[in-house]
């Protein structure tokens, strides 16, 4: 019988001194890890907002294809985007997009070798959160002013 399914599993297999096979214990994981601390919380949020934006790109595709397809399909797209659900989804998307953008700039800063110490990490983390709120509100102020 195969002891392991893949290479990752293989690193988890061990033997007791009497030779019996055991699965090695995992290091502390999600159930004991404090996900509310700003470092890990912002890290997983970057992945989540990236995934949301990936889904949000479908809106852009729909908008472009509807415009190319003619006035009828375009009116349908416009109707959805200006509906309550559509506006709610666009608002959520804009917040996710601003977060992913600002957190992405924070990642580029790390890639360039800056800001690794804990006080700076906390400061830039708070800046990302505050910046997301400010820029999301600003974006929708522009929408409201341009529309009105």
């Amino acid at each position: 019988m195969a002891l392991t399914n893949n290479a990752r599993d293989a690193t988890m297999m061990g033997r007791r001194t009497d030779g019996t096979v055991i699965r090695r214990p995992l290091s502390p994981h999600l159930q004991v890890y404090d996900m509310l601390q700003i470092t890990s919380g912002l890290s997983i949020s970057h992945r989540i907002t990236g995934s949301i934006w990936a889904g949000g790109l479908l809106f852009m595709v729909w908008w472009l294809v509807a415009a190319a397809a003619g006035p009828g399909p375009f009116a349908t797209a416009q109707w959805f985007f200006s509906s309550f659900l559509g506006m709610l989804m666009l608002f959520g998307l804009s917040a996710a997009a601003w977060y992913h953008t600002l957190a992405g700039i924070r990642h580029l800063m790390w890639d360039a070798g800056y800001g690794y110490d804990l006080p700076t990490t906390h400061r830039t983390g708070r800046a990302v959160l505050i910046g997301t709120g400010v820029l999301t509100v600003l974006t929708w102020l522009i929408v409201i002013i341009a529309w009105g």
């Binding site: 415009a67 375009f74 804009s94 974006t139 522009i142 929408v143 341009a146």
Partner: peptide, 17 residues
């Protein structure tokens, strides 16, 4: 792109095209 579509509220099909 965001600034462009954010200021497009209420514009017609012909203007969008």
């Amino acid at each position: 792109f965001t600034l462009s579509v954010a200021t497009m509220g209420g514009i017609s099909y012909v203007e969008t095209i």
